[in-house]
Structure formats: C-alpha cells, structure tokens
Design a protein around this nucleic acid. Sequence first.
DNA 1: ATGTCTTGCGCAAACGTTTGCTCTTGACAC
DNA 2: GTGTCAAGAGCAAACGTTTGCGCAAGACAT
Lengths: 389, 389
Amino acid sequence: MPASDDKKAGKRVRVTIIDVAAKAGVHVSTASRALSQRKDHRISASVVRKIERVAEQLGYRPNLLASGLRTQRTGSIGLVVPNLGDPLFAPIIASVQERAAQNGYVTYVASSDYKPDKLLSIIEIMSRQSVAGLVVASFDLQDPAADRCLELDIPTVAVLRDPCHPGLSSITMDDESGVREVVEHILDLGHRSIVYITAPLAASTARNRLAGFMAVAEREAAAGCRFDVIEADTYDIEEGERVMGRLIGSGLPWTAVICFNDLLAVGALVALKSAGIACPDQVSVTGVNNLPFVSLLSPSLTTLHNAGREIGLQGADLLMTLIENGDNAVRRVLLPSRLVRRDSAGPAPPTLAAAGPGRSDQGQRAVRRQRTRPSARGGVSGQHVGAGG
Amino acid sequence: MPASDDKKAGKRVRVTIIDVAAKAGVHVSTASRALSQRKDHRISASVVRKIERVAEQLGYRPNLLASGLRTQRTGSIGLVVPNLGDPLFAPIIASVQERAAQNGYVTYVASSDYKPDKLLSIIEIMSRQSVAGLVVASFDLQDPAADRCLELDIPTVAVLRDPCHPGLSSITMDDESGVREVVEHILDLGHRSIVYITAPLAASTARNRLAGFMAVAEREAAAGCRFDVIEADTYDIEEGERVMGRLIGSGLPWTAVICFNDLLAVGALVALKSAGIACPDQVSVTGVNNLPFVSLLSPSLTTLHNAGREIGLQGADLLMTLIENGDNAVRRVLLPSRLVRRDSAGPAPPTLAAAGPGRSDQGQRAVRRQRTRPSARGGVSGQHVGAGG
DNA sequence: ATGTCTTGCGCAAACGTTTGCTCTTGACAC
DNA sequence: GTGTCAAGAGCAAACGTTTGCGCAAGACAT
C-alpha cells in the first residue's frame, strides 16, 4: 500500500509486475500469466480483466531485460550493413526494420565499414545483447563471421552478399545473369570494346557480376570483341571518377564501360564530363542498382534494378521463421534483376566502333579466360583481359 | 567440474561468469569484479590475470541482459527518424551509430513515418527495452512524445527538428537564417515574384524556414516584390512534381521557386522539364539540405548545405554526456547552414521579371503578413501571401 | 460418500549479473 | 602482545520476469 503510494506520488520508481500483482490482490505469477500473450494461461477471465485494468492504471511497462533473461529470448534483431551512408542500403534498412517491427522486434543497426574484423566485433557485441537473430548485408565470401554466427547459434540471414556458407540462408540478387543482360544490351548497341569496372572481389556480388561479364566475354571471344576488366578499390562516386580518369589516360580502346554499381558509374560520368567526352554520343556507361536519383541525371543512367526493399522484406521474413519456427533448412533465394534502359547507354559511335556492324563478325581478338576465383584480391586490378592476338 | 565439462564438450550451453569463477577457483563476485571495467576493484593483480585467462579460454561472453537488469543501465540507445528511406537521414543514422559505437553503445533505429502516434509507440517499445537514451529526429513542435520522454525519464536529444520543449536539448540547423540567405540570393539575382513551397507546418524546420522567407518578404514589402506560399503535403520528389504542376497551371506570376527541401526542388525541376520550362533560363529553383546527388543534376541545384553528419555527431555526444554525467542542463545548439550556389538559380529573365531592375524600386504590391504560427496545419496551403494592391 | 479430473491460482526457483556487507589475514604501530 | 587498519576475497541479496510444480476446490462418475 505505501509502496503503491510511492509510485502514484511520482517518485519515479519503475512499476513492476509485482506492484501490479499486489494492487490486484493476486500472486505475481498470476499477473504474469494474465498479461502474457499466450492465451493458454488457465486464468479466469474476470481475474485477467482485473489485472489488465490495474496494469493499465498503474502504467505498467514490462521490463524486457528481465523477461529476456528469464526466457532466453528477446525481441531484438541486428542488422549489419557495410556502409550506412550508401543509398543502396537505405531501402534494406527501412524494410528490415519495418518487417521486424510488424513482428514485434526492434532492430539494431551497425556498419561494418567493409571490414571483416569489424563485422566480427559487431556480431560479438550484438550477441552479448542477446539478439534473437541477425540480418547481415556485409558478408564477404568465406567470411569467418559466417562461421561465428553459427558457432554462437544465432539465427542469421545473409542478404545482398552471400558468404556461400553451407549453413547460412541468403537472399540475393541474380547478379550474374543481370550483368550478362547488361553486356548483351551493350553488344546489341554495337559496342565491340567494352570495359568492366569491378569492385574488390571479396564479396559475392563482385564475383558474380564479374562472372556474368566474363560469361559473355568468353562466348564472344571469336566475334572481334575486346573485353577488359579494371578493379576499383571502393564503391563510391569518387573512386568512379578516379578509375575513369585512369581509363581515359590509359590509351585502351573502348566505347562502353560497365560499372559494378551506380556510384562508380556516376563517378565515371563525372570524369567523362570533365574530360569533355560525351555520353552517350561517344561512349556508353552503365551501372547496377538503380539508385533513386540516377534516373534524374543527364544522361539518365542505364542500370539494373535491384530490389533492395524486396531483399529486406524477404530477409526479415526468413529470419522470423528461423527464429520462431527453429527452422534450420538452408534457403538460397535469388531475386531477378531487371535491366532499365535509359540514356547513358547508346549506339556505339561508328568511327570508334570495332571492326564491323554485326555481332557475328569474325575478329582477330580473343578473350583470355579471366580467373573468376582468384586467390588474392588484387587479382585483376587494371588487368587487360581481352589480349590482342 | 562435470558442469565445466559440459561446456567444453560443446553442449552449446552459454558459459556464464559462474563457470569462469568455478574454473578459476574463486567466488563469482570476485570474477565479476576482476572482469569489471572499473579498476577500483580491490582484487590482486595475479587473481585478475588468472580470471581473465580463464574467461578467454572458456570463451566467456557477458550477458548484457543480466547485467542491465542488475545495474539498471544498458549499452543501447535508440534513434528515431521520420523516414529511413530519405537520404537526408543517412548521414545522421551513420554518425549517431558511429559515435554511439565509439562509446560502447549499440543503436536501435526505427522510423516514425512522420506519425506522432507511431513515434509515441516507438518510444514506448524502446523504453521497454531499457534504452539508455534516445536521439529523435522526428519530433513535431509541441510533440506529446517529448513530454513522454521526460515522464519516462529517458535522456533524450532532439536533432534536426526541435519540439521546442523546455526540458529537451536539441541540435538543429539554423533554418531561418539559412532560408533568409536563400531569399536574399534570389532577390540579388533580380527575381521579384517568388514562391515558397513549404512543408507541413507541424515541424520546427517548416516553421523556421517559412519564418525566414517571411522575414525577407515583410522587409521587401514596399519594394515591388511579390511573395507567395504554397504548402506541400509530403517531402518527396513526387510531391514536388505535383505542387509544381499546380503552380504552373495556377496562372500566378513568378520567376523563382524556393523549396522547403531538395526532394521537393528536384520534383519541381522534373515538372518544369516536362512542361518545357527552362531552368535556370526562365525560372530559378532552390532546395535545402544539399543531398549528395543534387550537385550532379542538370541544372545542378542551388541549395543550403545542412550538415547531417555534424548534427548526428553532436547529438550523440550530447546524449552521451546526458547519460553518463546525468547532466540535466538543457542545451539548444544551432548549426549554421551554408548557401551553395549552383546552376538552378540564375538571373531573373528580363521579360518576365517584375517592375524594375533594382531591389530598392518602389512597388505597388505589398506583402501581407503571413501568420507564422497558424493553429491549423493547412493554414497557408495554396494561399496567396503577397496580395495585390 | 469416496475417488478421479479439471480448473484456477500460489509457491519458489531460476535466468546471469552486480554490489554492499562481512570476514579473514597480514602489516604495522603502540 | 594487543589493537588498528587496509587489502583481498567470499556471502547473499537483488534486479523483474517466467514457469514447473503443487495444492485446493469444485465437477463428475462410481
């Protein structure tokens, strides 16, 4: 009774279930059962009503720390992305958070800054917070962090980048066939000297997009086409400018540049503009991701639409089933990407185009097989793929 | 001993401080003190070393739920933004998370979707998770959620939008003088019929930017200038298109449009382009925020640079001192915004400009005082401010 | 009237920490 | 040789829940 008065007097003491039980004249276990979500609680309706009324009246707010401690399960999940500033991750963050919230979960977010050890330490920290599960968008291939998630027994879904770990489910885009479609499109436009700017090959996205590029390159080996690959060190606009700057000064022949992502492509456009090279009249540029603003640029960017929101929703959904059903089946979902044709990719300029007009032309240049699984990161950096002769 | 064996046998039992203490041959309280951060723990160095070694060896990971329950303080904070997809909030999320992590905190994020009741429920949920503090970027003016934060005794910092609550600290941009600078710039360019597209006036940002516009409008009342205000319903590009479309069809005279933010401005540019109106040759457009991509548009957007990252860093820093020092002094930090002159704002077209060339010209049009604190949201929607005669 | 079942609720342990207090021990001064 | 003190470590309570178990009382069949 006096304790109850303390609360009402505003002494800023958190009201617990003990207070509720006391005021309702029942045992705390009864109050707990009555307030529980599970409705198999063997408590008479009248008592439930009374307890609910008292709880409401006292402003009872359950302490989820205590609850989580007792039940070994919490209402929070973690989301790790490589870069919180990259607009690519905004829809993923938004959709994961949204879907988690719909299921009663709150979401921690953290940025790994593309560093595997930072990812490891984030996982460590989140595990100490007893997260119920993890959505990770920053796994490298063979990432030790993937093993760690399984060791720690944390339900985990990989999104966007697949570590290709036998025990982990993933939701990713079909990068390989996406980029293949881009290259086909560029070939259809008549281009015969094509450069692909890849990202560091630590991530599955980079490998798979490169594989898509190489697949077409190999097939067109005998068709008089030239394919080169340059490796960018980061993923941002500035790096796109730098790489394109190097390419312009390299003396390589090319009329089209396919970029790993939109940001590199935008940087490439900037570099082209300042070099006075017209896009798409002289050269074509494409990106990947279809970031919200690339349709507004001049020229508007031809790119692959990657459904970040869909990835986030499906990733969160999958995590929920992992958590709540204890379902351990490993799923690998591949979402289709869609080519968005805009202005930055146009017909190859006749004067600069390679040999003939048709794709089936005989050519003297062959594509040398590019290792798509090089052991070291810098494997293809600046390397010339389509060797002369 | 057998219990210890269980752990080593990989029975997936979480190793607790009890296990560590047992294996080290000390009492659990001793282990707790030895592993504690606070170094005033009266435990001999040799024992500390032994316990640390055992903890390492067993792979002990402290349970922060238990710790938080006992100590009434946790290592997590919450961050609420109105829209996780809006690029405006990316640097704020990134910087708050970064600074929080530096201080050993993990960060929950959630989106209020611009809905006050959703904000309230988020605060409720986060409070149940016992967050140590809150950074909120989605307060409305006089937001009841602000009261709630104080009732719940949660250290809270308002960023970007100031609820103007006497008990809450805030870190915001100096919106009023920023927009004033924009209007001055537009006037300097010779424009004499200016439209301001405001956002819904629930937020301090909208009020303050409108106040900046109105301040100049009043001052220039006698100078033959015309000032109109239109209210947008949301903050996105599509709404910018719609509003600009209405403006174009309205028959109002104007040569410059100052937009509440970049997204509306970009939408305005889109609408202008599809209406065949040239920017900046025929009309000028400005935004606010200097989003990363607006420098790349054609025309590049004249805007105010708002330092989202700085807001986040200062907001997080302030929250840390609130949490750790129990410091209750209310601070209101106003960060300066900076005009970024680009191509979307150019000289007023001579043929369309109002009366004379100079700003000091006498004019017959006066600006009617716009209520800057209307009671209802729709107060100025589509309203003509600078009345004729 | 006795026995079995079901319903409704109380009892108390447990989740994994932290921390005020107590106790022991050895150092030191008197 | 007794007393004081500080250092180092153990004891046990507490944080706020949840839940297996037990118990009482009523329903029902025998």
